[in-house]
Design a protein around this nucleic acid. Structure first.
Lengths: 216, 216
DNA sequence: CGCTGGATTGAGTCCGGTCAAGCCTTGTGG
DNA sequence: CCACAAGGCTTGACCGGACTCAATCCAGCG
């Protein structure tokens, strides 16, 4: 049972300027579990701010293989994937709320320079997240992948126990693994007393240093 | 021997507005083979436009594992990875030229709105590229990875034979494979008469449809 | 209470990694 | 011009980690 990361989180996910702009611009719409918020290959003409619940981005290959791009928590924005069409579709993990704003109407919402910086900031964040994930997918073992994932989830303010709003299949498709391998690694990490699962949908980190080391 | 993709390429990598702005702003500097253009974890305070040669982005893990983020050809810009520090370092594949512009001096170079759009366009392109690569790393077999890679290289205007400016190790670290597996898959693709290698540094696509199918 | 879908566990297989030779190209110096 | 060295690429034999298939467990719920 070692210390949590920094006693005070360095910054609560940093209030994004873009989130503030979007929140003012649109009333959130509600989505049910597994509802599609936007479709892959659809025109990418809006930005979407998650205001409640959690959203996953998903890319489906014609043969059924699935890649989960990421999980998005309240305050995070999705939808600037591609100029023309979305590379991923977005789906509600559970009941959630999303505020959507058309790109075309964006310019009228804020000073163009401020807006430009807000957009750049959000896109940089998204790019950094995606690039970090490249490393995980390309060069890490199954155990390291799962450890990295748990570490990321436990990072922010989300207290202890950390909720795990996504199912095993979503985790597997996020990490490029199978559901069985994810399950095995989770039990292995629990056996090594690195984390402890109370239910299969939330966990506590019991040895933070070990988790960091395993995440490599 | 099937038809090349579209008889006329849809757009020669699309002349990016950002490239034009950067090219006007800085005289390209020359780099030797394997020279470091910027370092991972260094402050990310400049944008870098490749004007000649090819550049690779690389992330090194403490234990020596390596992930190649991508390969950048003349006209492409690198360096907006992260707000604070670079996630990847950039290295010259061979002799090359790069024009670097400090972010701070960027605002003086063009109308802020134009600049904002140019930046957004370039970042979207980069994000799309990275997300496409996520799918490759997470959900594709070794053969599909290599086929996808060759297909991407053969895509643009680069005529036939397509030059392969990077070594096998770079390809391997880009695709999350070993050098041996890359080599095996290349000979396998050649045995299936999908591509033909004249030397190990350039190839022709002999059956485009098969390559597309294998890339899945 | 039994049903249903998700999660876990186990046994066996296979793809891709590891280790180890060889080969081929390139460049250098006699 | 040839000999040689060096690095990069290829090929082969073997191994192991992750996948597959299948059975079981478990929690939530009608």
């Amino acid at each position: 049972m070692s210390l949590p990361p920094p006693a005070v989180p360095p910054a609560p996910p940093a209030p994004l300027a873009l989130a503030a702009i979007l929140r003012r611009a649109a009333r959130p719409a509600a989505f049910d579990k597994d509802a599609r918020i936007f479709d892959q290959d659809a025109a990418a003409d809006s930005l979407h701010l998650v205001t409640a619940g959690v959203v996953r981005t998903v890319r489906l290959l014609p043969d059924g293989r699935r890649q989960v791009g990421g999980f998005y928590y309240p305050g995070e924005t999705i939808g600037f994937e591609t100029a023309a069409t979305h590379a991923f579709s977005a789906e509600a993990l559970g009941p959630c709320e999303v505020a959507s704003v058309r790109r075309a109407s964006l310019d009228a919402l804020a000073d163009p320079v401020v807006l430009g910086h807000a957009l750049a900031e959000a896109m940089q964040r998204e790019l950094a997240r995606t690039q970090a994930h490249l490393l995980v997918l390309g060069r890490k073992s199954a155990c390291e992948k799962v450890a990295t994932f748990l570490k990321t989830l436990a990072q922010p303010g989300r207290g202890s126990p950390v909720p795990l709003p996504m199912g095993r299949q979503d985790i597997a498709d996020h990490l490029g693994l199978t559901i069985e391998t994810v399950s095995r690694m989770l039990t292995h990490l629990q056996g090594a007393e690195v984390v402890r699962f109370e239910t299969c949908r939330n966990f506590q980190v019991t040895r933070w240093d070990a988790l960091e080391r395993l995440a490599a």
